[in-house]
Nucleic acid binder design. Structure first.
Lengths: 155, 155
DNA sequence: TTTAAATCTTAATCTACATTAATGCACCGG
DNA sequence: CCGGTGCATTAATGTAGATTAAGATTTAAA
């Protein structure tokens, strides 16, 4: 258990790392993401203050995800083992969020996913570049641009 | 903790139910799924023998998912609370599977998702109708049909 | 401040997958 | 045995979102 100060852009976990660490966000904003074989980035989650971020893989398995800081951040680094035993409710919440994410990705259009994102994470929308939101939603920045234009016309 | 025998097609959990139960599959095959506002079914997971199936929602929150039996099945019904404390590793595995699922849905084409499904769950492919596989992959049965045709031509 | 480098938007074209519709097949109940 | 009902496949057409490319705008660096 150790406090760490992370600069914007700094990589905390690299794909392939065997870290077995979990990060409790005290301040700032982090993200985890994967890069596919075509070199495209896909944001898996954003972690603002109060959230936990980690690659919940098998112990000692190489990380599938990258984790880095979107803003200068402060995290507390905890051992995966103890974090897990210590805070089962956080695991459950993680499963809920992922469950929702899968259902969203399967059944909602880009517009609906964007609406949902804005409602659920209104603060994050202001803090990250559009291309990251697009990446989280599973669409291109260009497509997000047109989604937002359609929304404006409606209002 | 109670053993239950479920007939093929029988509904175990209805959307909106407040069940707080978790089901350990002893025999057979179950599935959980959602139905969107357009009336379309989306299979969230298959649960063969040895798996656990449940809607991991907040305690006392209404279920978002339906759960029913694809084959005649035997399950052991356990209280969510005790199941969770009892088997944290299963929770972790659940998160891993969901993590993979999200990455798949975001970065892979229908063909790649089908390949991955066949490799990961070869037994299930044989046991469920095509339309359920399509629903799990997030595509229509028609699209799955063409995916399989393309595969055959390659071999 | 000036320039360079990202980022965002708009528009034209392309493509993966959806939709619709028709056909063939298996299974099942009368 | 026959006529339904659901499932799988095929083909024709439609569409959401990707790709490509060109400006416009913001950010960062020199």
């Amino acid at each position: 258990m150790k406090e760490r100060h992370i600069k914007k852009g700094q990589l905390l976990v690299n794909k392939g790392d065997v870290s077995n660490k979990v990060f409790l966000v005290q301040e700032g904003l982090l993200r985890s993401y994967s890069i596919d074989d075509k070199g495209k980035e896909h944001i898996f989650m954003f972690a603002p203050k109060g959230w936990v971020i980690a690659d919940y893989n098998h112990f000692d398995a190489p990380s599938q995800l990258f984790i880095d800081a979107i803003e200068d951040s402060v995290v507390v680094q905890v051992d995966k083992q103890s974090a897990i035993e210590h805070d089962v409710p956080k695991l459950i919440r993680r499963i809920q969020v992922l469950q929702n994410r899968v259902i969203m990705l399967m059944s909602a259009t880009a517009i609906e996913r964007y609406e949902h994102f804005v409602e659920t994470y209104p603060d994050i929308v202001q803090r990250v570049p559009q291309k990251m939101i697009a990446s989280y939603l599973g669409i291109t920045p260009e497509a997000l641009s047109t989604v937002k234009r359609q929304r404006l016309r409606k209002k």
